[in-house]
Computed example of a mutant assay.
Amino acid sequence: MAKEMLGIDIGGTGIKGAPVDLSDGSLLRKRFRVDTPQPSEPEAVAEVVAKVVEHFGWDGPVGCTYPGVVIDGVTMTAANVSKRWIGLDAASLLAEATGREITLLNDADAAGIAEMRLGRGRGHRGTVLMLTLGTGIGSALFTDGVLVPNTEFGHIEVDGTDAELRASAKAREVEELGWDEWAERLSVYMSRLEGLLSPSLIIVGGGVSKRSEDFLPLIKGVRAEIVTARLVNNAGIVGAALAAAAARSGKRGGPPGSS
C-alpha cells in the first residue's frame, strides 16, 4: 500500500483536502478548503475538486467523499446538494475534471473507516456507530470492524421529523440552540438509534466535534459509550485517502481494522 494519498472531503458547505500519511492519519500539508459552490451543481463541484488536486500538485490516485449514498461510483441521493447528483456517474465526472483516478465513497463511511483504522474505533469489536454532525447527519455502521455501507441514519424520523433537520450542527446554528437544548435533541436521536442498533460504541465526528466538551457530557439516556473522533473533522479526508490506497492495491475500501 502507498505511504501517502490525497483525500478530498466534499461537504454541503465546504470542500477540503490534504495529502495523508496512511500510517497514522496525519495531514502532510496544511488542509486546503474551498466553499462548496451554491447551488452545488456537479460540474461546479468537480471544478473545485480539480482545484484542490491542482493546489497540491498531486499526480496520483485520489480518494473523494460525497455527502450521500454512493454505489460503484454512482451517487444515488442528494440531501444537501443539487438533485442533479442523483443517478450520476460522479466518479467518472470527477476523474474527467481532475485527470486522476478517483475512488468515491460516502462521507460518513470514509470518516468511520478512518476512525476504525486509526482512531477511536481501532481494535473495537461488536457494533460501532459513527455519527458526523455537520450540515446534515452522516452515519457509518461497523460490526466487528466490517462496514455496512450507505446507512444514512441521519434521515430516520424522530417525532415525525427527519432527524438531521432537528439534530444536525446546522440545525443548532439556524435555531440558535444552546448546548443543553441541542444535547437534549441529540439524546433523543441517539436513544432512537440505540434502540434499533444496540451499538457498544458511538463515535462523534464532524466540525462541531471540536467542541465536544460542550455537549457530549450533556447527553442523557444512552447506554453506549460516546467518544469524540480522534481525527475530529479530518476523518473524512483521512478515510478517503485510505479508501483510495486500498482500491489501488486491489482491496475493498472497508476497514478490517488491521494492515
Rank of each mutant, 00 (worst) to 15 (best):
T161I: 12
E176M: 00
K170F: 07
V148W: 04
G154K: 05
E164H: 12
A163L: 15
A183S: 14
D144N: 15
E173W: 03
E152L: 13
S168M: 08
L165M: 12
D162N: 14
T151D: 04
E176H: 01
G145P: 04
E173R: 14
D144G: 04
E176I: 00
D162R: 14
I156T: 11
L141V: 14
N150L: 13
T151E: 12
T143C: 08
E175K: 08
L147E: 03
W182G: 02
E176S: 05
D144Y: 03
R172H: 02
S168K: 12
L186H: 09
V146L: 05
E164A: 05
L186T: 11
D144E: 09
G178A: 03
R185F: 01
S168P: 05
V146D: 01
L165P: 00
P149E: 14
E181P: 05
R172S: 01
G160E: 11
T143E: 07
P149W: 12
A169R: 13
D180E: 15
D159V: 02
G145C: 05
L147Q: 06
A167S: 14
E164S: 08
E157Y: 15
E152T: 06
G178N: 01
V146Q: 11
S168W: 07
E184H: 10
A171K: 02
G154F: 04
T143W: 07
G160P: 11
A169Y: 13
A171S: 13
E181R: 14
V158Y: 01
E181M: 05
F153M: 14
L177H: 03
R166F: 03
T143F: 13
L165A: 10
E157L: 15
E184V: 01
A171M: 04
L147K: 10
D180N: 09
L141D: 08
D159R: 09
W182M: 05
D180L: 07
G145M: 07
W182C: 06
D159F: 10
W179E: 10
K170C: 00
F153L: 15
T151I: 08
K170S: 10
E175C: 00
G145N: 03
E181C: 05
A169P: 11
E173V: 00
L141T: 02
G154Y: 05
L186N: 09
E181N: 07
D144M: 06
L165R: 14
V148H: 11
E157D: 08
L141I: 09
V158S: 05
L165D: 10
G154N: 03
L177K: 09
K170R: 15
V146A: 11
E164I: 01
E176C: 01
D180A: 15
R166S: 14
E164R: 02
H155R: 15
N150P: 10
L147M: 07
L186E: 07
V158E: 00
D180V: 06
R185V: 11
F153E: 04
T143A: 02
R166T: 14
R185N: 03
F153Q: 04
K170V: 01
I156W: 06
E184W: 05
E152K: 15
E175R: 13
A169D: 12
